[in-house]
């Protein structure tokens, strides 16, 4: 058996739950043993700089032979700050949170009706808030995309403007580990960071879906859902405001749309249809600029947009 503690509270006991299933417990330990960079030993030197908020999940074998089989002794902390953009670490955190949701009993959440589900929601919320950063997005700033764009009408005469946007760490495990999530969420879901399980279509949420697969028409539909053109700022009340990019495969035989989202690691990631989220292009290179990366048949670059909290997506 493995005991997991969510190190989250300061003034009251942290929630804990047990992974009783031997196979699941071993799978977790194997993940840690195979990817030692994603976990730190509890009580080790790294423990001195944890601070407040969600400090991670502590995994502790509850039998003397379990950890030993994997060369592990004592407890191990898997924290969002330690994991950063490491996909293995993100996947392990997602897996542990999912297991919390399945746990029939959680210590430290006595008031909740469905303890497992409540804990899962709490941890997801903390994970999201804790790892997301707000940054300025300034017209003329090259840092967010690598090269200047000719698609935004941002020639020299354009007035200076600074909007604030959110960036989240790359977390493909959330989209890839569950087959229902993987198959039923597309590039628009991923770029918006909103799982709907409906293979969301621009404009459908607003009742005004695109009528042609062209830049102007998919742009119109996306704006109807509530997105803004880049540099048309959203207020703080609309957090999270992600920077996304729209491209089109113009045909004549292959017509489609596709979206990318900027992550806090300053690369762009995307989810090609029902296939796994990734941060590389069709040449297998990390995407630092969606305008110039290898996009296969999606040769038309339409422009950049901001998503928002009130976005209608369906």
């Amino acid at each position: 058996m493995l005991r997991v503690t969510a190190d989250i509270f300061s003034g009251r006991p942290n929630p804990t739950w047990d992974i009783q299933d031997e196979a699941e417990a071993r799978a977790v330990l194997k993940d840690i043993a195979s990817n030692r960079r994603i976990a730190t030993e509890v009580g080790g030197a790294a423990e001195s700089s944890l601070g407040l908020g969600f400090r991670g999940l502590i995994v502790e074998p509850m039998a003397d032979d379990l950890g030993k089989d994997f060369g592990l002794e004592g407890g191990y902390r898997v924290s969002p700050s330690q994991v950063g953009g490491d996909s293995k670490g993100s996947e392990l955190i997602e897996k542990l949170i999912d297991l919390a949701g399945k746990s029939p009993s959680v210590e430290g959440l006595e008031d909740a009706e469905d303890q497992g589900a409540s804990l899962r929601e709490l941890l997801r919320d903390q994970l999201d808030k804790g790892s997301r950063t707000t940054v300025p997005d300034q017209r003329g700033d090259q840092g967010n995309r690598g090269t200047a764009s000719h698609h935004e009408g941002t020639e020299e005469a354009a007035p200076e403007i600074t909007c604030y946007i959110e960036k989240s760490p790359y977390n493909p495990g959330f989209w890839n580990n569950d087959s229902t999530t993987l198959r039923n969420n597309n590039c628009y879901n991923y770029a918006s960071n909103k799982k709907t399980n409906t293979f969301a279509q621009p404009g459908r949420g607003a009742g005004s879906m695109y009528t042609a697969l062209t830049c102007p028409e998919v742009t119109r539909a996306s704006l109807a859902d509530g997105l803004h053109h880049r540099y048309n700022c959203f207020p703080d009340s609309q957090k999270p405001r992600y920077l996304v990019a729209l491209v089109i495969a113009p045909g004549p035989s292959f017509k489609d749309f596709h979206w990318y989202r900027l992550n806090s690691e300053n690369f762009w990631s995307h989810k090609p249809g029902g296939t796994p989220a990734r941060n590389v292009d069709n040449s297998n290179k990390v995407i630092t600029n969606p305008e110039t990366c290898n996009r296969g048949p999606y040769t038309n670059f339409c422009g950049y947009f901001y998503t928002c909290k009130s976005q209608k997506i369906k």
Binding site: N186, C187, Q201, P202, F254, D256, H258, K271, G273
Partner: peptide, 9 residues
């Protein structure tokens, strides 16, 4: 037919 990203296949 697995080809699209935005539209359903």
């Amino acid at each position: 037919l697995d080809a699209y990203s935005g539209q359903p296949n």
